[in-house]
Amino acid sequence: MSFLGCVMFLVFLAFVICFMIKKKCKKNSNKSEIVRVDEHYKMNEAIVEGPHGPEAVVLSVEDDVHIEDLVKKGEKKWEKTV
């Protein structure tokens, strides 16, 4: 009789593990990830002139990057249209 009890316990344990895996997969599939990237370049050029024409060119480049991560869970929104 103890052999039958072990088999029943293992079947129950397998059922619980399968249920938890399905629940975890369903929970992860409802999320959506939104990534917003704003990138701006600013360039300045300055020419320094001497007595015999242009002598030096100064070029400065500024790179401005903003990254915003938004993670939203799958929620249903009810909107009333008129």
Rank of each mutant, 00 (worst) to 15 (best):
V37T: 11
N30M: 13
E55L: 01
K24Y: 12
V65D: 08
N28D: 08
G53W: 03
I21T: 11
P54V: 01
N28S: 12
K22R: 15
C18R: 09
I34K: 06
K26R: 07
I34H: 03
F19D: 06
H40W: 13
M43W: 02
V35R: 06
E49C: 06
S32C: 14
K24V: 14
V48D: 03
S32L: 11
V37D: 02
K22S: 13
K31N: 13
K24R: 15
V58C: 00
P51V: 14
I17A: 06
V48H: 08
I47Y: 00
E39K: 11
K23Y: 08
G53R: 11
C18W: 07
G53H: 13
K23M: 05
C25T: 14
S60H: 01
M43C: 02
H40A: 02
V61A: 09
V35A: 02
V57I: 15
K24D: 14
V16W: 00
N30V: 09
S60I: 03
S32Q: 15
C18I: 13
H40D: 00
H52K: 12
K31A: 06
V57C: 15
H52E: 12
P51S: 12
E62W: 00
A56Q: 15
V65T: 04
V61W: 07
P54S: 11
N30W: 10
V16Q: 13
I21M: 10
P54G: 01
V61K: 01
A56M: 11
S29W: 12
N44E: 13
I17N: 04
V61M: 14
G53L: 15
E39I: 02
P51N: 15
L59H: 02
V57F: 07
K42W: 07
A56V: 06
C18E: 09
E45I: 06
S32H: 09
V16E: 06
D64K: 07
E62C: 10
V65P: 00
I47D: 01
A46Q: 04
V48L: 05
D63W: 00
E49M: 02
I21C: 05
A56K: 06
K31V: 10
D64E: 05
E39D: 10
A46F: 00
D63G: 02
D38C: 05
